[in-house]
Write a protein that binds this DNA or RNA. Structure first.
Lengths: 338, 338
DNA sequence: TTGTACGCGTTATCAC
DNA sequence: GTGATAACGCGTACAA
């Protein structure tokens, strides 16, 4: 059936279509909602024809006002500059699509104020569900900002609560496991490189896991706004020197891929990449680092699967009116050391 | 003023608030829309109090149905895995925010079908404007998919039309300029590395610009789904050997940063990074490559500024009912060789 | 300064 | 099978 929609600016309403088809608006509504069981072939054909000619599309806003649902799911990412965020969105998006739901992405831009704005908008609109990788790390605080009754899944953050379903990674144990692996290889000193650790559950968990093995691990904290500052590199090099003087082997543990990328040139220029007394590991989701350091052991999360898992639970809850099952309120998608 | 919203599931409507405040719903409406000029201090205070107690928020859907606008702008990105896309969104988003508009991000995931789905949703909802980095490269085709009357700005694609305002980069001339720069340094052969060139205006323009200087440039075309395939690297190494045998210097011209990153390890392991007869250049928006190759000359676009520029024009058009000015329908944000 | 009443475009419950 | 018509929650003349 060719779509002959004319080119005028006019947007047709259900009423106008009804008039043109010589039926009532109720019948049009039935037609566009696929309730053909009680409708003559002739009227159906007639209506199809008119809709085709006019290029009529339903006004989703009016429909939402009437039905109180939208088939729309809001996905709030901490920062779309991170591969984790975009990939987790893509996972969620693809599963939601299979369930006749549409994912809409909001970027908090690593900014709590922005996250609040996003949540405010989401509360005002008719979203059937929410998947969020929150910046706010206090469950009581976050609770304030999410409209009651909005079906919500938390991703990548452990808020220590039963109120929401959470899809997380085994940050603590994989960090511990990785640290132990290198400890066994006689690496006696560990330098953790991360953005501000306190206040973000993922980084706190990772750091804690490492410290069960390296209680005295040092920390180089990166200021997000100036990741490439020379100061940091000097600190790292100085630590290496100190360890070398003491005949100790040094492990660099990057809590985020981007930070390793920032340090990589320095390591390269100082010929540290294949030094036997230096090891580098990192949380690294993309393939880039593994290509740069083919012999390295890296921690790989599965953000796509995390998003997909969150979406599956949410879709089920939306379409089948499932209520959260307390016993399975936290799903852990394990990261792998490889 | 403390927000004492109670914790019940109930969502208050304007009518209920009106009743509680002992005024009509019209007065509440005036209050929430800031029309305080004609309202007694007392009623205003009373209303503020009730709104505070009830935690009332306006139903954006109902408002949209009534006003036909939403203060929402849809931003459609080609693929949020690309730094360009996310950065252009962040630019647009920040400017829109300053204009009391909210940017909502749709990801086409490098998939034309997905782009169509996104546009369909956008057509159904009440968006005040659209900023799109389209996958569809035919203006007539794209025209079909965008609702008449939707204020639209095209980013990063030259659709060769006056119908829309377009914000683009000087892909052609910067490529030419860069090629010329290396030509002058006695690089006699150029190898272009890109995803499929035909069908995407940006890549076509870049390739054409290069070919004005290197008419015989070879092309290594990367299959997006298998960027790391060994085949490509072998091809590159073979070309180098051939050129070396003929005492020719070779320029590698990557049309996308990610591709250079994919090849980088190979170049590194074959000691090609500082070989005098090999040069590497690329369209490279992030700081990573420049750090990896501090002495290289790279092309840097400004996606943030492109998004911001698009948003500025759109915001002006939405808020001031400006109509497009034909004479300035294409804005070029130049990339720089640095 | 405030209230009444209608419209926005759909859906859904009755009737017929 | 189909048609009136009352919601849905808000904005806005027009009155008062």
């Amino acid at each position: 059936m060719v779509n002959n929609r004319n080119n005028s600016e006019h947007v047709f309403t259900i009423k106008e279509v009804a008039q043109l088809a010589g039926v009532s608006s109720a019948t049009i509504s039935r037609f566009i909602n696929g309730k053909m069981n009680r409708m003559s072939k002739e009227t159906a054909a007639k209506i199809a024809d008119i809709i085709d000619q006019t290029g009529f599309v339903v006004n989703a806003t009016a429909r939402q006002l009437s039905t109180h649902n939208s088939q729309l799911v809001a996905v709030v990412a901490a920062d779309i500059d991170d591969y984790f965020s975009t990939e987790f969105f893509k996972g969620a998006s693809s599963v939601l699509e299979q369930n006749q739901l549409t994912a809409i992405l909001f970027d908090s831009n690593s900014d709590k104020k922005r996250e609040l704005t996003n949540l405010k908008i989401i509360n005002h609109q008719v979203f059937d569900g929410l998947i969020i990788q929150p910046l706010i790390n206090e469950q009581s605080e976050l609770r304030q900002e999410i409209r009651q009754g909005l079906k919500t899944i938390i991703v990548d953050r452990d808020l220590h609560t039963q109120d929401w379903t959470m899809v997380t990674t085994n940050n603590y144990s994989i960090s511990q496991q990785t640290a132990a692996y290198f400890r066994q290889q006689q690496f006696d000193d560990c330098i953790v490189i991360s953005e501000a650790v306190t206040g973000t559950s993922t980084r706190e968990d990772r750091s804690a896991g490492i410290r069960t093995v390296f209680p005295n691990a040092s920390l180089i904290e990166i200021d997000n706004s100036r990741p490439f500052i020379k100061e940091n590199e000097k600190k790292a090099l100085a630590m290496i020197e100190k360890n070398r003087a003491a005949k100790r082997k040094t492990l660099f543990f990057f809590l985020k891929e981007r930070l390793l990328l920032a340090f990589f040139p320095t390591f390269m220029h100082h010929d540290l990449l294949s030094a036997p007394d230096i090891a580098i590991t990192a949380f690294s989701d993309t393939a880039i680092v593994k290509r740069l350091l083919p012999d390295s052991k890296l921690i790989k999360q599965d953000p796509f699967l995390m998003g997909a898992t969150a979406a599956e639970i949410l879709a089920d809850r939306i379409n089948n009116q499932q209520t959260p099952n307390i016993s399975s309120n936290q799903i852990v998608i394990p990261a792998k050391l490889q």
